[in-house]
Amino acid sequence: MTHILIHILLVLLMPPLLLGVIGKTKAFFAGRVGAPYLQPYYDIWKLMRKGSVFSETTTWLFRAGPIVTLSVAVTASLLIPLGNHSAPFSFAGDMILFAYLFGLARFFTVAAALDTGSSFEGMGGAREATFSCLAEPTLFFALVVLARLSGSLSLSTMLTGSITTLWPDSAPSLILLAGSLFIILLAENCRVPFDDPNTHLELTMIHEVMVLDHSGPAFGYILYGAAMKLFVLGAFFLHIAFPFKAGDPFLDWGVFIIAMLLLAVVIGIVESIMARLRMVRIPQILVASTILAAFALVLVLR
């Protein structure tokens, strides 16, 4: 019971901190002091207190977009095991629900963007749909590999139980999986080599362009939901890349929190040392990550 409470508290409170750590890391590399670690919390709080403006041409879809995004992120966060503890909800086949929850969120974000009737937002929606089409097979290949390795269809048993024991035997395929999942983690969360969360140039951005028309609490939900998505996918990645077991349940939570913060630092470093890819290169990288994951599957099936 306490562990479920800790799970829910972590999921609700920690995600914006990751954004703060990423920002601080980037500031460190640029030689700046940077915004405080808690800045994303202040931003979200500020947006929550503001009023909203809705365009007259929009329908209920536009208002549903941010709410669906946030609620989907919360649902997915209840399915993913954190650290060495199983998730509050788990059943056979929840991996497919997990993958398609994000699909649902994406559909509503794109639909809300199209609902505004703005040509820029339509462009962003087209890009988002294209790139996520290419990113989805990787996630599924990864899930199939894990299901095959662990012999289970539920995320909790798949990720918490056996990865540590699997490392010595199937190290090649797990390294491939970790690599391709890191690419997907960056692409799905609109981090730098794929998308720059800080630009406001409509021609180059993908995710930001779709949420231009949202304001006030709705935009706050979007920011919070995006942070939570980063948290959930980051936890998924950590299970494969850093399967550490401390033994003591509370120590496990500590290890998990430190590992998440380290992951945020690594993402910050990647963002500092890499430039954004050209738009034509993004599909190539995503296809390459799919091939890595497919290759991992071939190695496992052998």
Partner: peptide, 21 residues
């Protein structure tokens, strides 16, 4: 092109595993 070549390479690799078995 490069992406079709990559996909062909992936298929060839998978077939290599099947054939080797």
């Amino acid at each position: 092109g490069y992406i079709p070549a990559l996909v062909l390479g992936a298929i060839a690799t998978a077939l290599a595993f099947v054939f080797a078995a």
